[in-house]
Design a protein around this nucleic acid. Structure first.
Lengths: 210, 210
DNA sequence: CGGTTTTAGTGGCTTTTTTCACAGTAATAA
DNA sequence: TTATTACTGTGAAAAAAGCCACTAAAACCG
């Protein structure tokens, strides 16, 4: 039984909305003010009908015969995704991948800011003078609380993933972006997204054997 | 109309098989020889019934009342995913993320080896003496051919993504793991997987606003 | 050896997601 | 003003994915 007022947006649609938003940013920076569902769909790598269907969850503001207003649409999506405010994020695990992510500046323009990093050994591998402080794990609860952090990036080895995840959850973290090669168990109320680069490659390789 | 002999494995199942494989590796390194669908499912973050269903695509070799043989199962999956041979992979774009991926040693144990990297400016940011050579883009076709490379990791800025993707495809690359924030258009025969860290974070953030 | 427990395999039901076909509306051209 | 063209919006059908209840087999225990 669905609410008539605001139907839940499907999981997959939410994901694609982010993709659309990214494409819209790109269009905007190219001074393009209007885009058709076909053009935007192609940019996002989906079918036009799917794009339109996805957008209907946000209401209707496309102009028939013309397309969508880039600015308006991207604002609409932004509002719905709740990305209008800058979100503080912490990162745990300053190994290979963790350091890489700290040096990666792709989050800020999208509304996320890594405000602190944590590691078992806070002396670890600081060859670059990073603007992001590296703390010992013990400081985690304090910082999470002080900055009201809700999301964490988990970039620790498999063996430590579950333990660290537990620590994050205890500290009040509500969403975990997991890079560890195992999937930590999390309670119902915690959102978990997994990214495993090896799996992506492997998956790819499956589809290219003809 | 399906072939009776070998039903196509669903996309999602293929993806999860990789996840299972990873969990099995973990179990194997812990000297565990047998695992139940329930235990493996929990490790992989799926439901036991789904795991079993997924495995039926490979045939049946679980032992009722006991579980699956870790070694046998992981070999079975490996064969099906076609990951038994070491796959050479190239990386394009030695910026922030590209360098990070080069320093990331998570691919080798999974059967992938980054054999070469490419960048517009091959002098770029080689603070670490990497064992992986960094070439100018002009050498791409030659190396792809010589090492029979089929997959590439694309880690260039959005503005260059399409152009570089085209170059990869022209050189004979069949699968692209794309980290650029736009989705390049690729012909039918080329497999494309997209990874966008900002999108993952954004997606996560959506699901934690109650 | 028989009963009990554990655990895989499966058919089909349910839900979710995608696709399609076409109705509807605005802009534009003539 | 009318016709034409270029789009979007959407209900319904189709496809895909997920889930559950149940069956069957093997192991284990006494």
């Amino acid at each position: 039984m669905k609410k008539a007022t605001k139907t839940e947006i499907p999981r997959k649609t939410v994901y694609r909305l982010s993709v659309y938003l990214r494409c819209l940013h790109k269009l905007k920076s190219n001074r393009i003010v209007t885009v058709s569902s076909e053009a935007l769909a192609r940019a996002a790598g989906v079918k036009p009908t799917q794009l339109r269907k996805d957008l209907t969850y946000l209401g209707q503001f496309g102009v028939r015969g013309l397309g969508y207003d880039v600015e308006q649409l991207s604002q609409m999506i932004t509002v719905h995704l709740g990305t209008n405010r800058l979100q503080p994020v912490i990162l745990v695990g300053a190994g290979n991948l963790g350091n890489a992510l700290l040096q990666y500046h792709g989050f800020e323009p999208e509304g996320f800011e890594i405000i602190a990093a944590f590691d078992q050994d806070p002396q670890r591998q600081r060859d670059k003078i990073l603007r992001i402080p590296l703390h010992p794990m013990s400081k985690l609860p304090h910082i999470v609380q002080e900055f009201r952090v809700r999301m964490a990036i988990l970039a620790v080895p498999a063996a430590a993933a579950q333990e660290v995840a537990n620590a994050l959850i205890d500290a009040g973290i509500l969403g975990i972006l997991n890079f560890a090669p195992i999937v930590p168990a999390v309670p119902e109320h915690v959102a978990l997204n997994n990214v495993n680069l090896a799996i992506e490659l492997e998956n790819l390789s499956y589809f290219l054997q003809e």
